[in-house]
Design a protein around this nucleic acid. Structure first.
Lengths: 196, 196
DNA sequence: TCCATAGTGGACCGATCGGTCCACTAACGA
DNA sequence: TCGTTAGTGGACCGATCGGTCCACTATGGA
């Protein structure tokens, strides 16, 4: 039995739905995004959305996964398999997220949004954050030479700075639009950590 | 003509509505909070809500203003009219926001949430942020002795750290639950700024 | 005491919500 | 060529949305 070839139309439609949903969800959050909105922005009827995804929860879980993968792909290109110092990493994170903001915008929203039933999208995003913190921590241990607890603290601070700067951008403030300020902060903190 | 005394019941109801709305809005955001939810949590009928507030937009604008004032009152007690260094301020901000999270939770949500019509709550929160940044900047100029641009950069970094740490707490991470890490970061950055 | 008014209770409105159903088309394998 | 199936179009569902309306109660001032 030959592997069934997926119809070109089906895959393309799934893409259009995910793109439209990611766009709107990054602007309005889970509760603020209606299936009808996704339908009209993607140009596909609601029945197509429910054919590709079982329900709203599953759709937005797929949106998180998909937009994360698309951002990660771009990010990995910029990293190009090097090990990075905290200040290098924070610059790459900041700049790549400024170019592909949909992923983190929706991510931040689902962190803050609670619902009666736990959202799959939220669980997925929290898992991505947890793994990212671990990766950053391990990398910082190698590139700065500090011990594991100090590296974990560095990672937490780096993530907080990136999140905070992203929020400031969303608020229309240009105070941290330049990533060099973040790098300077982390460099000072790394030096302080090393000398103690 | 004697000033008309407001009925005790009316003011108390307004309070209950604002408290209920702030609670739910901090969990679900603007779009995710329905007037029916506010009605049942406050125990007052919808007609009472619409008697006290003209519409949903006005209600949540009042929620931002009110929850800000209540947090600010508590914060000012802790500050006790001193001038603070960046590291002192960030600790007080972090801890007071951990104790009164409703204000910033909803604030972050309305930063990220967009709507067809600009939300009054969002505009109010952005204005509060702007004024806070100015106040922090002026204070840091006095307490650290750096020049105005450096003080503004310090304020932006301090705010980003507080926002980022708050988001990490909302995500259930305890990596930055202790505010001393934030203080250490800012102290290192202040020293670095001074010596340049 | 009696009227004016602040505020409550609840039925009700049209629009929209998430989701279902089913007829239908187009492309594929046999 | 023909039957199967992936995928589309659109009508439709009950529930809930933000908001309105109005009868009603309770209270304070005259």
């Amino acid at each position: 039995m030959v592997e069934r070839i997926t119809r070109a139309n089906g895959e393309a439609s799934r893409r259009r739905i995910l793109d439209a949903a990611a766009e709107i969800a990054g602007e309005r959050g889970y509760a603020g995004t209606s299936i009808s909105d996704v339908s009209s922005r993607s140009g596909l009827p609601k029945s197509s959305i429910y054919w590709h995804f079982s329900d709203k929860d599953a759709l937005f879980a797929a949106v998180i996964e998909d937009s994360y993968e698309r951002w990660l792909e771009e990010f990995n290109i910029r990293v190009s398999a090097r090990d990075l110092t905290p200040q290098e990493l924070v610059v790459l994170l900041h700049d790549s997220l400024a170019d592909f903001p949909a992923f983190l915008r929706f991510g931040h929203l689902v962190i803050l949004e609670w619902h009666d039933t736990e959202l799959s999208a939220r669980a997925k995003f929290l898992d991505i954050r947890r793994r990212s913190l671990q990766n950053m921590s391990a990398m910082f241990e190698r590139t700065t030479g500090v011990d594991a607890p100090a590296a974990a603290s560095l990672a937490a601070v780096a993530l907080a700075l990136v999140d905070g700067a992203f929020l400031a951008r969303a608020a229309g403030e240009n105070t941290l639009a330049d990533s060099s300020a973040l790098a300077a902060v982390l460099e000072a903190f790394v030096d302080r950590t090393r000398t103690i």
